[in-house]
Amino acid sequence: MTEIKNQYDYRKETYYKLLYILIGLMICFVSFVTDIVVGPANLTFHDVWLALIQSSDISKNAYVIIWSLRLPMAIMALLVGAALGIAGAGMQTILDNPLSSPYTLGISAGAGFGASLMVVVGVSALEFLGVFMVPFGAFIFAALTSFAIYSINKIKNFSSETMILAGIGMMFLFQALQSLMQYMASPEALQNIVFWTMGSLSKANWINITIILVVLIIMLPLMMKEAWHLTALKLGDEKAAGLGVNVEKLRIKVFAFISIITAVAVSFVGTIGFIGIVGPHIARMLVGEDQRFFLPLSALCGMTILSISSIVSKMLVTGAIFPIGIVTAIIGVPFFFSLVLSKKRRF
């Protein structure tokens, strides 16, 4: 009788977790549609619909606004939100620390310095990259930051505290170097650096979207493949090893996955903070640590938060688009402090 009750409770719990994911999909879809409709051009939902179905009744200006600006930005918000959400979830799991994210570990700061370096200095050998030179620099330095953090922690056998401290150190280092780039920059270059480091979806285009989408299509299944091992890891290293999990190999593998995802995402949109903290934490409150549900819901929460932030960024200043990185910081900082000050959390 007890076994039957346990099976019933498990199925009921699984049902609710799937329900949360379904609700997350619905909220995300509503936010996505709203993000396309809202904007300085004051287009109606009917105009957006006619543009999306490529009707001949829509004006040329409205068609260009939807297909060249709003739709790419809305899709980019979803993809980057998913990338940062799942990257934060993966980092928090392998480090067992709810403050872990690409932003707090300095990976975003590394990307910011790489982009600034390309804007100010540039490299003649990379001129063939054209408009992709700045994203390329951001990607390289984000990847190098991840490798440096891993190398430091390899000495300490992946101590969670060591990795957090190494990430904070990297963040301060690259912020200082980025300030140096700003000091050396011309007025025009300085404007580009500041705009990029604030975080923006305005550079979104179908090529960038395709690149991020391909990376997510490859990396997300690889992350989900490790869902059981990651769930076991939450029981502790010794218990996970007792269940047959190669703990060190798992951490290396997952850290490599999330480093690639993060580097690609931030290389196109700039520094967008706190999505990797807030998204996974909301998912954890809803479905717990079962990675089969935690990882996809973290991605959904990241998508929704960044999509809503995109909407807010277009409503704060009439006729203009506010930098989305500022919006996510305004949302994320209070949440960050609530985590730090919570007595129930262990760091």
Rank of each mutant, 00 (worst) to 15 (best):
L69W: 10
G167Y: 00
I140A: 14
L339D: 07
I272W: 09
I326H: 12
G242P: 01
A111T: 12
L250S: 06
I331V: 13
M76E: 12
D237P: 00
S56D: 14
G236S: 02
T197Q: 15
L78F: 03
K60C: 09
E13L: 11
G288H: 06
L99Q: 10
M171H: 06
M223K: 04
F29H: 02
G90F: 08
A82G: 06
F174C: 01
K12R: 10
V333K: 01
I207Y: 15
Q191W: 10
G288Q: 06
Q182E: 14
R70Y: 12
R345I: 12
F32S: 07
A299E: 01
A87P: 02
L95W: 03
P72H: 05
S202I: 05
P98L: 13
L222T: 03
F347D: 15
I65H: 13
V254M: 04
G24A: 05
E238I: 01
K17G: 06
R345N: 14
T262L: 14
D57H: 12
I321M: 06
S267L: 02
A148F: 14
I66E: 15
A125M: 14
Y150N: 09
M170V: 02
L177H: 10
R292W: 13
V254F: 05
E238F: 00
Q178A: 08
P323M: 03
I107W: 12
I209D: 08
M133D: 14
S310K: 05
N192F: 05
T145E: 13
G236F: 06
G236K: 01
K12G: 12
F172R: 01
L144F: 06
I66P: 08
E127S: 10
A176Q: 06
G114R: 00
L235H: 10
N97Q: 09
A265Q: 11
F255M: 05
A142Y: 07
G273D: 15
I4L: 02
L250E: 14
C28A: 05
D96F: 07
V30K: 01
L300M: 09
V134D: 03
L165A: 03
Y183A: 14
V340H: 10
I261H: 06
F132M: 09
E3L: 09
G288Y: 14
G114M: 11
A185H: 03
S101C: 08
Q175E: 15
T14C: 10
K253Y: 15
A125H: 02
I308M: 08
I321Q: 09
R346K: 14
W206Y: 15
G273Q: 08
N192D: 09
V333W: 10
T304Y: 00
L233Q: 11
D35H: 02
I27T: 09
L250N: 07
F336T: 09
L19F: 12
A41Y: 14
S202H: 09
M181P: 04
R251Q: 13
F128L: 10
